[in-house]
Design a protein around this nucleic acid. Structure first.
Length: 483
RNA sequence: CGGGGCGUAGCUCAGCCUGGUAGAGCGCUUGGUUCGGGACCAAGAGGCCGUAGGUUCGAAUCCUAUCGCCCCGACCA
């Protein structure tokens, strides 16, 4: 029995948003703190199953667009990081360094990769000689480590899983095209699979990747109206080409540095997924990423009823699986109510109850993860109906999230309005004018903890004046508090 | 790295002030009765009280050191 004191309750969002977030993760069995390893987490089977679905969907898109997977070492010579000035400056505070191995101090320390631009640059230099070797389109699925002072499960942990694409091109135009292509893939994945609407944009100088010429990103709005950077795609220009001497002979016979890109999404996406859809009852998952689509819960009833309920449940499971759906017939020794709570907390999109009364009436009782009331559906044609319903549900989640984002995106023109939107812990997506200087950005960040999340790609030209300084601006940018 | 908090059963915690040899709820095991929104009864298992010293006849409790974790700030996918 669960009373108010038991630790398996989910704190309501309105009461304490970060407690809620952690409670959802715990109750859904997604992950838990690694405890004995600072700032790290254990991704549990249900959480990892979601990651595998994310991997599968993205990997397919990467392959379709001509990329190949490869794997580079976890350990990177310390000197490599130092070859690109901005890169080392950006990453050195969060590096974990291996100084000893085999019982001896190493001649040169290794850093545990925080990202792989440098070591991949080293190998690209060996692999690329001619324009015929380009473009070189590589992706790596890997773990990386960034020693963060303050961690939150999935959103920021010492070690995390991701994919990092690394490509080399013969021209800047071609590289920029790649950067935008991959950003688009991220956006389509976020919206189409995660049902998480995003704003595509360009990072400002101070927010861009250390070592990039320009960083593109997708930004999503969480339920507390804070922004989450959900994916990035970088135009590296020739910065790493020059640092690692990655040259090719062009068609004119001249040596030229390659133009590189890198792009990545991480297990942070799971954090975004949680904070986009979940509610006070636990996780809510879009069908396209749900490891289990349908939980079938039997109600066994009086003695003689059990056999027919078992049979009916098994046949439903079989029919749903024939539709390509992940269905679980939950015959564990628990009360039905217990199972309802559990599957709800795990975010299963649809639940089907089957009891003696349903069997007798040739029907099932159905409840989707967001519904407040149950419905009765005929048993006949159930497989098709469920499959179609899940598509609708996927769409419902997306529309719901998009409405929330739109409703909380506002245009602001005065500094007073700007301050009131961000008063206290409040945030929104604020479209406002900015004079484009690092100083103004820093002042706003200092005063309100608000940053320019990005300059949206679809922001129209619109003359105006900076919300803080009153200096001229040519377009609005996206401001928000962020994770 | 600054400020705060906490280490006692699988989990959440009480006990510590005022030393006397280990507790609760949940969870777990077994048996039975149950099953349309977190079942009930009964019987059990489970802890050298973070670690190392010290004080004492005696330490979860007092002292010292140490390690770890969480929260709040400065940095970040």
């Amino acid at each position: 029995m669960a009373n108010d004191k038991s630790p398996d309750k989910i704190t309501p969002r309105a009461e304490d948003y970060s407690r809620w977030y952690l409670d959802v993760i715990r109750q859904a069995g997604l992950a838990e703190p690694a405890e004995v390893v600072k700032g790290c987490m254990v991704i549990k089977p249900h959480g990892y199953a979601i990651w595998e679905k994310i991997q599968r969907a993205l990997d397919d898109r990467f392959k379709e667009t001509g990329h190949q997977n490869a794997y580079f070492p976890l350990l990177i010579p310390e000197s490599f990081l130092k070859k690109e000035a901005e890169h080392v400056e950006g990453f050195s505070p969060e590096l974990a360094v291996v100084t000893h191995a085999g019982g001896q101090k190493l001649e040169e320390a290794y850093v545990i990769r925080p990202t792989s631009e440098t070591i991949i640059g080293h190998f690209f230099a060996k692999w690329i000689q001619s324009w015929r070797d380009l473009p070189l389109l590589i992706n790596q699925w890997a773990n990386v480590m960034r020693w963060e002072l303050r961690t939150r499960m999935f959103l920021r942990t010492g070690e995390f899983l991701w994919q990092e694409g690394h490509t080399a091109h013969a021209s800047h135009e071609e590289a920029v095209e790649e950067v935008k292509r991959m950003l688009k893939i991220y956006a389509e994945f976020a919206e189409g699979h995660m049902a998480m609407p995003v704003v595509c944009g360009v990072k400002t100088e101070s927010e861009k990747f250390a070592g990039a010429v320009q960083s593109f990103c997708i930004e999503a709005m969480m339920q507390d109206n804070k922004a989450l950077q959900a994916g990035t795609s970088h135009d590296l220009g020739q910065n790493f080409g020059k640092a690692f001497d990655v040259k090719f002979q062009n068609k004119e016979g001249n040596q030229e540095f390659v133009w590189q890109t890198s792009w990545g999404v991480s297990t942070r996406l799971i954090g975004g997924l949680i904070m986009t859809h979940s509610d006070d009852n636990g996780l809510v998952l879009p069908p396209k990423l749900a490891p289990v689509h349908v939980a079938i819960v039997p109600i066994f009833g009086k003695g003689g009823d059990e056999a027919k309920v078992r049979e009916a449940g098994a046949s439903i499971e079989k029919e749903l699986k024939a539709q390509g759906l992940a269905a679980v017939f939950d015959t564990r020794e628990h009360k039905p109510g217990f199972k309802y709570f559990e599957w709800e907390q795990k975010g299963v999109p649809l639940r089907i109850e089957i009891g003696p009364r349903d069997v007798d009436a040739n029907q099932v009782t159905v409840k989707d993860r967001l519904a407040t009331a149950k419905e009765t559906w005929p048993r006949a044609g159930l497989g098709e109906r469920v499959k179609a319903y899940l598509d609708t549900f996927q769409n419902t989640l997306f529309e719901r999230a998009r409405k929330r984002m739109n409703d909380n995106t506002v245009r602001v023109d005065t500094w007073d309005d700007f301050k009131s939107v961000f008063a206290g812990e409040n945030s929104k997506f604020v479209m406002a004018h900015w004079d484009g200087t690092r100083e103004t950005e820093a002042k706003i960040k200092e005063e309100l903890k608000v940053t320019v999340r990005c300059i949206p790609l679809d922001a129209p030209e619109e003359p105006g004046t900076c919300v803080l300084t009153g200096k001229p601006s040519s377009r609005r940018v996206l401001f928000a508090k962020s994770y």
